[in-house]
Design a protein around this nucleic acid. Structure first.
Lengths: 232, 232
DNA sequence: CAAGCGATTTCGTTTACACTAATAATGGAA
DNA sequence: TTCCATTATTAGTGTAAACGAAATCGCTTG
């Protein structure tokens, strides 16, 4: 489906283009340039499709690319990606806050709406919510000007036994994973104590109120937490 | 997946297809089949484009078409069109009611969102508003099952001088026209009295509270009203 | 009843974006 | 340093949807 949209700052990009920019943004956030195959995996496309698109986008000045070397966003590309990310996160916040969506189920809906909303609608939703800084997954919402701070956080498996911590954000979009996490009583803001951990990448046991939960290593890595400092 | 985003009855149509169906629905509502050129004019496309699309859609069983004779919707096509219309009108209602849009400016936004929202979101918006029956322009909102009643109404130029009436709906999507209508103090629900009318398709004068307004014939025809009966 | 004109369709292209199959480049192991 | 596996790119196709130019239909009218 070809769906262009309106925006004052970002030129009129197609849904596909916006999805590529988001994907490249999220990959390059990890430090290294985005490879064709990583992008393909993330967007569930074939590598040749990505190769072709990446060439077009670099011609449009949205990204820096030389064959066989991976891609990075230009300033313009990054601004566009952050605009889409802002739309996505505002939409998620609004749907949870005002329309009764659960925080683990909003992603799909936002994924489609982010390409169709106007900047005006986004700003009205943001205003209605009091300009939130974090979305329901705990991810920071970029400002309208494309500024975003990523608060530092510690993945659960790196927190020492005995520590108290708060879940800050959940780094997954997988509905099943999110549903499971929600079902054990965890959501951004939840406070817990690390009770035990098995060695060799084994599971971590946490206490939530008066119940204890065991969280595997893989899942634990998605749980980005803020450790409550021990000393003053 | 057990519950996809799209309803069980409507298959997943592209934005263009949904726009064609809406256009054809609105033209054929007037009684006659929709001609290629009417559709082209309404959607701002060239007649050849419409010809091609219309052939594809009739192959898909969404409309009845024989060359040079115009098109009509099949039952399936009509159901799809009404689904989109419901989405559009619920979205307009929600934006006006909950996000501060003015009734004369929501159309564009709804026009893009109607192709991106899930049925779940529509039903949540409808629920939040208490399942409204009319949108901000006074148009009836089709029920989820595709039922819609079109209350009868009289265009302003057909109302006799001396009669009192209420504006029911405004049959235009043109932003300038709507802005003008809103600016003279008219919106769905407004009650007024017909004070005078010039002959030969001349303007009608109405009284709104204690001010009088003159409305041209062309514009008047967009104002669908409910005449307050004279006798018991 | 033939002619002409507007409405409609056919034809050939274009753009955007996806795919598969075939080819080429890169970097590490032998 | 050569060779191979991985990864990426090119080449060729397909589909959806638009366009303009040219051919054609069918109604009105002289």
């Amino acid at each position: 489906m070809l769906t262009p949209m309106t925006s004052l700052f970002t030129d009129d990009l197609t849904t596909s283009v916006e999805d590529y920019l988001k994907a490249i943004y999220s990959i390059t956030r990890q430090g290294h340039p985005a490879s064709t195959s990583e992008i393909a995996r993330l967007l569930d496309l074939s590598p040749p499709s990505v190769s072709g698109m990446v060439k077009r986008l670099s011609q449009q000045g949205l990204l820096e690319y030389q064959p066989y070397k991976g891609v990075e966003l230009t300033a313009r590309g990054r601004r566009a990606a952050l605009t889409v990310l802002r739309r996505h996160r505002i939409i998620e916040s609004y749907l949870v806050e005002r329309l009764g969506y659960s925080w683990d189920s909003v992603h799909q809906e936002a994924e489609r709406l982010e390409h169709a909303v106007s900047d005006m609608l986004i700003e009205r939703m943001a205003g209605a919510l009091g300009n939130p800084e974090f979305d329901p997954h705990g991810d920071p919402i970029p400002a309208p000007d494309g500024t975003m701070v990523q608060p530092s956080s510690t993945p659960l498996p790196d927190i020492d036994v005995g520590q108290e911590a708060a879940l800050r954000r959940v780094s997954s979009h997988d509905a099943e994973q999110l549903k499971f996490i929600a079902s054990v009583g965890l959501k951004p803001g939840t406070i817990f104590t690390v009770v035990a951990r098995q060695p060799f990448h084994g599971p971590t046991t946490i206490r939530l109120g008066d119940t204890e939960r065991v969280i595997g290593h893989e899942l634990g890595f998605l749980l980005q937490c803020e450790v409550h400092s021990e000393e003053q």
